[in-house]
């Protein structure tokens, strides 16, 4: 199942499912924004993919590294509503209590398709 939605914060959402711990995203999902929130419906957390250049993409798991609460991407940073941790758009901690950056996932562009490795 593939669905592209538009969130209220103007960051497109992309719903899909993983296969063999791989999430596939067509590169044209980035036509409107350099950010995309991927919602793998069979996985516990969303993924924010950031298009750094035409060929370089960075994927971050939207899970706070302090107490595993889902984070939200608001105003170019990730916020955790549970204890107030804030991460910048590269996943680095800006405000604790989290100490570790957001988990990043290996992401490759192959034949106009992003391959996000969940392993």
């Amino acid at each position: 199942m593939l669905t592209i939605l538009e969130s209220c914060s103007n960051i497109p959402l992309y719903k899909t499912k993983s296969e063999n711990k791989i999430v596939r995203v067509p590169v044209n999902a980035f036509l409107k924004s350099k950010y995309l929130i991927v919602i793998p419906l069979d996985v516990s957390y969303n993924i924010t993919v950031i298009k750094k250049t035409e060929t370089d993409f960075h994927s971050l798991v939207m899970k706070c590294t302090h107490a595993d609460n889902p984070v939200q991407f608001i105003g170019n940073e990730f916020k955790c509503s549970l204890h107030g941790s804030i991460f910048d758009n590269s996943g680095k901690v800006k405000t604790g209590p989290a100490e570790k950056p957001l988990y990043s996932l290996v992401t490759e562009l192959i034949n106009n398709e992003l391959i996000i490795n969940l392993k």
Partner: peptide, 9 residues
Amino acid sequence: TQLDALPMN
């Protein structure tokens, strides 16, 4: 609950 379609908790 945290909504996907809206930035709302």
